[in-house]
Write a protein that binds this DNA or RNA. Structure first.
Lengths: 133, 133
DNA sequence: TATAATTCCTATCGAATTGATAGGAATTTC
DNA sequence: GAAATTCCTATCAATTCGATAGGAATTATA
């Protein structure tokens, strides 16, 4: 599996944010999306650190998107939540580790697969995950 | 990660088989490919059960491919080793579990991603993973 | 017929990752 | 000052994955 529950939660939270006008508290969002509140906290914190979402602290605070939904690619959101989007360890976390890399005949194939996936995720945006009217 | 070490081992074993004329013992293959012998056993057993590889028991026994390398798609080999080739749980193991499925705006996107990946894996074969002369 | 080489079968293990939980500090509005 | 909220750190339980172990069944050959 490439895309974890965490990543899909992140996208759902962002899509829910997009559907609102003002900033929304995580309490509401988590409830609406049926995502465990404390888990949602951990996820949103990643998005804030990455600048994908902005936060307002204190009472009446909450979160809001910083751009229009169609300006977030799935790729850039998921890069924040997934340990690796690579299809194999060979092109992901353990990329450096493999002594075969220089001559491995499979490696170019896995790189091509990664590129195929990343193309897909770069061509789709948050807007594609929103409820159509 | 979509493709596990187990899957890549399977492909390497099959590619090594393809590079030989007669049937080869797993002892040799595992050593050549630097794959733990006992793990290789478990993997080859899956391939035999699926009819991708044929085995000869007893002394001088071993394994051999049943087709030419270009006639094995990566997709059909990996289906034997991977729990799921789906990019998300939503379209994989837990496909049945999600009560949102009927109206989920994300689901079609994940299905399209799965199709993109499967297209890729169906267009590439064992021959693409072999050392070019 | 004994032996060696091999495939086949079942069971288990340790490490890593993931999804989730808990408690409380810091901040802001009213 | 109270309430609502974001922020921070630590921990946990289940699952999966890569790997290991022991031995039974089968076959060629000396």
């Amino acid at each position: 599996m490439i895309i974890s529950t965490k990543g899909r939660y992140a996208l759902r939270i962002m899509a829910a944010l997009a559907a609102r006008e003002k900033c929304a508290s995580l309490r509401e969002l988590a409830e609406e999306q049926e995502i465990p509140y404390k888990y949602a906290e951990a996820i949103v914190s990643l998005l804030v650190k990455a600048g994908l979402v902005e936060s307002t602290r204190g009472k009446n605070g909450g979160y809001a998107l910083t751009r229009a939904p169609e300006c977030y690619t799935l790729s850039e959101v998921l890069r924040q939540t997934e340990t690796s989007l690579a299809a194999t360890d060979c092109t992901g976390r353990k990329e450096q580790d493999c002594p075969r890399a220089a001559t491995c005949p499979s490696l170019p194939v896995w790189r091509a697969l990664d590129e195929t996936v990343d193309d897909f995720l770069s061509r789709h945006t948050l807007a594609d995950l929103m409820q159509k009217p």
